[in-house]
Structure formats: structure tokens, C-alpha cells
Computed example of a mutant assay.
Amino acid sequence: MTVSTDPVDAFNASEVVSAAKFASSDTGVATVAADGTITAVAVGSTTITATSGTFNATVAVTVSAA
């Protein structure tokens, strides 16, 4: 997951991006590293959330069997 601002050169954009924290709603399905890298753990669905200050975004992740 990548955090960015629009426009890229918005006031304090670098602080917003660098302050982003990531979380998985179900770490038994997928984990997310501090840099936003998502790693599958088991089959299932989870939501990854990126938060920076009062801003947040989510992405639904589904892990399927190969």
C-alpha cells in the first residue's frame, strides 16, 4: 500500500506521507509492514488501513489459495 498526497507538492505532504501508520484488521490473513508492504498469511479477507493524523484510507485484501 502506498500513501501519497494530491497534489504531490501539497503543503506538508512529506510529513503526511512519512507519518503514515498501517494496520491489518486480521493479521491471521495478512500483515502489513511499517512501509506498507502487505504479506499474505492465510486464505481469507482483511482490511488494511493507512492512517496519518486525521487522514485515513482503507483497502480490502482477499488472500486466495494458489
Score class of each variant (00 low, 15 high):
A40W: 03
D26G: 07
D6F: 12
A66F: 11
V3Q: 09
V61D: 06
A20K: 06
E15N: 13
V8A: 15
V8H: 07
A65E: 15
V41C: 02
F55N: 13
A30Q: 10
A50Q: 10
T46Y: 04
F11E: 15
V32C: 04
F11G: 11
A10Y: 10
D35N: 14
F55T: 07
T58F: 01
V61S: 00
I48A: 02
S24M: 02
S24Q: 02
T5V: 03
A65F: 15
A34R: 06
G36V: 05
V59R: 07
N12M: 15
G36A: 08
I48C: 03
T58P: 01
A33M: 01
D6M: 03
A65N: 13
V29W: 00
G44S: 03
A40S: 09
V61N: 02
G44F: 04
A20P: 01
V17P: 03
A23W: 11
A57D: 12
A19P: 05
A23G: 07
G28Y: 00
T47S: 14
A66R: 14
V16K: 08
T37L: 03
G53A: 06
S25E: 05
S25D: 09
D6W: 10
M1A: 06
T5M: 03
G28P: 02
A19K: 15
I38H: 05
V8G: 07
M1H: 13
T27C: 01
A40T: 06
A19D: 04
A30Y: 00
S52A: 04
T5L: 07
V41R: 10
A33V: 00
G44L: 02
V17R: 13
V43T: 13
T27M: 01
T5E: 04
A30S: 04
T46N: 01
A20G: 03
D35H: 11
S18V: 10
G53S: 09
T47Q: 14
V17S: 04
A23V: 04
A34L: 02
V59T: 14
T37E: 10
V16S: 09
P7I: 08
F22E: 10
A33C: 00
T62W: 09
S14C: 08
V17E: 05
G36Q: 13
I38V: 13
V63I: 11
S14N: 11
E15L: 09
S18M: 10
V3S: 06
V43M: 06
G53C: 05
T54R: 07
T62D: 08
G44W: 05
A42H: 13
S24W: 04
T39C: 09
A66W: 11
G28S: 09
S25C: 14
V43I: 14
S24A: 02
V43Q: 08
A50S: 10
T58I: 02
S45R: 15
